[in-house]
Design a protein around this nucleic acid. Structure first.
Lengths: 340, 340
DNA sequence: CTTGGCACTCGATCCCCCTGAGTGCCAGAC
DNA sequence: GTCTGGCACTCAGGGGGATCGAGTGCCAAG
């Protein structure tokens, strides 16, 4: 009973604070929300909430502000993900519909997400490991140089130049291409190492050095580059509330965002279906102590998630709306990828 | 004589203002520079410079600050590009030396440039048009779908998926690949349209629809995508002086930087060898009115420039140092591309 | 043409006071 | 036990001087 109202109060505080960006007091709260009790009662509840660490006062004679712990409770228990409006859904479809090729899809997605959430959007390229090899192409650049181009079924292309130990003739290249393709085409990238392990031995001894080199490069392309490419958009949104959010300086946030590796680690925990939220202090990176990350996995239907996307914003964020947008965009992108 | 000193004064003002970020007065000027005259004399010169529009006072009882016109004169006549120090040169070499592949070169370059200049660095991918076709690969995805992969001699790879009007057999694909390659391989991309114009007519009538479609796609890849890919780094540097530079808000700058098209237009004027500077009001884009762009072309030695790189920073910028860094990085990248 | 002197301007800073939002606590009502 | 009105208290923020000092423009003399 009383406990329930306390939670209502916390919810109201979070909502008001997100909306106004000002510490919320007991009086303002009863005016804006149908709590049915007097400010004095609310004050008691607030004192309790403060003792429990869910809210705090910037200074003695000010209203209350949610703590990271308060936002956490709000996200976990007090809010429901807000579905997008009809026009928003249609905007997403329209925006993604015209996409041509993987790069285009990823670029459109990240812009869309930034616009929709009015926050910094980050999209990871579909990871190589979980997709399958469509085709491996080799182009002979010179007698001892070969360009290896790997094409995946997600439409992704990776290239490497190989310096060969011995000269290699054009027909030997064709032979090698055919044999490697017959081994790995259609198989998941993760299986490639196993499939190719015996390949060099099937060649004449004096060709093995070359074959091994090429195989090593292919594996490198598959494994080592397991992917770290991300695209970002909407950084200008960081400068919107500027002094208000992010404790005055957006610099540490920008710095964190430039370290792509950091971002990928943030997304590491993202699950296929669920929307994951990491709030303030929960973030592993120092520069994101005043930021929250809302992320999820996306991918081809049925194949399971194979990359992540999300947004980074101030802890003072519209969580239900943002989570709704992130979830919706992830779904649509999954669909688009499945079709294209 | 007197004119000469006036220019010395302007140079001193620019240098001091860039160093201290505070309006510079006559007294401070004679203390820090060996001008050999008294503050009163300097004041007369300053009044003249102000009449001519090279400097201005933020308010009546303050020192002077250079105007855009003042910076322009400084860059054109009063400064010399500052060569990098030995350690800096070695750092560049070391940083770029380990690069593998075009993506890696571009990524390392942009980070290097951001670090060196402590500003936002932008690097355009080597443009397709001025490079030559190395190889055109075609992969049959299904009976009526073909993936076209274009590889240039700059190590760049572009892909497109084509929906064909009619089914196409595997050997027809091989034939088409051979014929297109023999036509355009080794030729500059710009020549491709001319070279391929008659190709469809050399095929049997019932195959022409497919051939035309493929040719159209290849041309599209070459021409339409003439390139708009850029990478950026160092945006956190914008938030360094924050309130000081950029008239309080870095938001319009961030917005401008997100419009890649805008950036490319900025670079459009960049010449192969010269370092181009665009100052404040000279910039075409509204959001960059308080910013300067320092850019240059870079490319393979002997082949001529084929892409641009540069940095974006506040008009209050160390022009000689920045121009030196931009020039040096462009040269090294050119070398690296020539070797790799 | 240069210089020292001088009166003047005006943003920045500090101090002080006041206001008002918001609090915690308590005694009484339900 | 829970809620409520009342009340004293706290303190950030804002406005109004007063002061300070860097920097200026101008002028008469060198």
């Amino acid at each position: 009973m009383v406990e329930d109202r306390k939670l209502d109060v916390l919810r109201a505080i979070v909502e008001d604070y997100v909306a106004t960006n000002e510490p919320v007091g007991s009086k303002a709260l009863v005016e804006r929300h149908p709590l049915g009790v007097s400010p004095a009662t609310i004050r008691n509840d607030m004192a309790a909430l403060e003792d429990e660490g869910y809210i705090t006062q910037p200074h003695t004679s000010a209203g209350r502000v949610p703590t990271d712990k308060g936002y956490r409770l709000f996200v976990d228990k007090l809010s429901t993900v807000k579905p997008l409006s009809g026009p928003e859904r249609r905007a997403i479809e329209g925006f993604l519909a015209g996409a041509v090729g993987l790069d285009d899809v990823v670029n459109r997605t990240v812009r869309l997400l930034a616009q929709l959430t009015r926050q910094v959007a980050v999209v990871q390229y579909p990871s190589l490991t979980r997709s399958a090899v469509r085709h491996l192409e080799m182009v002979r650049l010179s007698e001892t140089r070969l360009m290896v181009v790997l094409i995946t079924d997600t439409g992704r292309v990776e290239q490497r130049v190989v310096e060969l130990p011995d000269p290699l003739a054009e027909d030997a290249v064709a032979d090698l291409r055919t044999r490697i393709n017959s081994l790995i085409a259609g198989h998941p990238l993760a299986d490639a190492p196993t499939l190719m392990v015996d390949l060099p031995e099937t060649f004449a001894p004096d060709a093995r050095a070359n074959v091994s080199t090429v195989v090593a490069t292919v594996l490198e392309t598959l494994v080592e580059q397991v992917d770290e490419r991300v695209v970002m958009a909407g950084t200008a949104n960081l400068a919107r509330g500027s002094a208000l959010d992010f404790a005055g300086s957006i610099r540490p946030v920008l710095e964190a965002l430039e370290e792509h590796v950091v971002l990928l680690r943030l997304f590491g925990e993202a699950q296929p279906q669920a929307v994951h939220v990491s709030i303030g202090e929960e973030n592993p990176h120092e520069g994101l102590r005043a930021a929250s990350v809302v992320s999820t996995g996306y991918g081809l239907e049925g194949v399971g998630a194979f990359a992540s996307l999300g947004v980074v914003g101030p802890t003072r964020m519209d969580y239900p709306g943002t989570m709704g947008a992130v979830r919706a965009v992830a779904r649509y992108v999954g669909q688009v990828l499945a079709e294209g």
